[in-house]
Design a protein around this nucleic acid. Structure first.
Lengths: 157, 157
DNA sequence: ATAATAAAAGACCTGCATATCTTTTATTAT
DNA sequence: ATAATAAAAGATATGCAGGTCTTTTATTAT
């Protein structure tokens, strides 16, 4: 639904928002390491986001990426629009060229509910909303450490 | 969400169910023409479906594809499982390896609603359900003819 | 000034979904 | 038997998302 690029973008932005201030920036390598993403590829994506002023970057020593207060209020849908475009939210689940009230596919109404629901979701949630959840300990943007204590994953020996 | 292959499969099956009986079969070329799909590629897909006994095929003159009564009751999710697999319905929208109640991504609950909803939808609807809608004139599986009379698409000159 | 750092930019590679083309096999009609 | 038909099967091509590698540019610290 969302491309990998888009997912990488969203997770990185949230990570940057969580870990930086205008003074303390964070580099591609560290983001890539912490989120387990391919560093060079991530570079391209962050470039795009920088060009669109969704995040800020500084080159050279102590450089890296950060995100200002204002940008943290950006809604997820904006980022999706920049990376993937918004065609998905107006497309037919069965691939019909035109799928509308006048010429619906057999699941038009059903698909529409979910597509519209996701659109509403992405249109209502901001970067900051994600970060808050993480800071409250109610969500994660990094992968679970499989060897963490108390995780069901292990415990079988 | 569904791959092109899967969409081609679903549309073709519905088309076959709508247009054939055990006596009157339909060939790849005609299906491809009517649904505007690449014929040879479609062949491969129909092969898979035949192997899985979701449709039936006969070679030679007057041969082609058909679908028996019993197979028309097959649910869409079965076809999706054959062509795409069902990983999607158990995956994280943010790409986390583990995304669960214990280690949720920031939109875990929201994504889950839509994923589960789609799963229920595909699990409840059969080929026959699709065909019925079409035969009742309440849905289409072929693309709209842009030059059809009374379609908003044109009418601007 | 120089060296070190880190993003930006550009060129290139890879794998897979998608698509095409050709040959083979099964079936039917003559 | 033979020719025609149509799916099956196999080999090959294409396009693009995803990923890597190298060079350039901007910035900072010494």
């Amino acid at each position: 639904m969302l491309s990998k690029s888009c997912i990488y973008a969203l997770r990185s932005i949230v990570f940057i928002a969580h870990h930086t201030t205008t003074e303390f920036k964070i580099g591609i390598k560290e983001i890539a390491r912490e989120l387990e993403l391919p560093a060079h590829y991530l570079g391209k994506i962050l470039q795009q986001l920088t060009k669109h002023s969704i995040i800020q970057s500084v080159k050279g020593p102590n450089g890296g990426f950060s995100i200002d207060e204002k940008s943290q209020k950006i809604k997820l849908i904006t980022i999706i629009g920049v990376i993937d475009g918004l065609d998905f939210f107006n497309s037919c689940g069965f691939g019909l060229k035109e799928c509308s009230k006048e010429h619906p596919c057999p699941l038009h109404d059903n698909f529409k509910i979910y597509r519209d629901g996701l659109l509403d979701l992405f249109s209502s949630k901001s970067i900051l909303d994600m970060v808050s959840k993480i800071e409250d300990g109610n969500a994660f943007i990094q992968n679970a450490n499989l060897y963490e204590t108390g995780k069901k994953s292990i415990k079988k020996y």
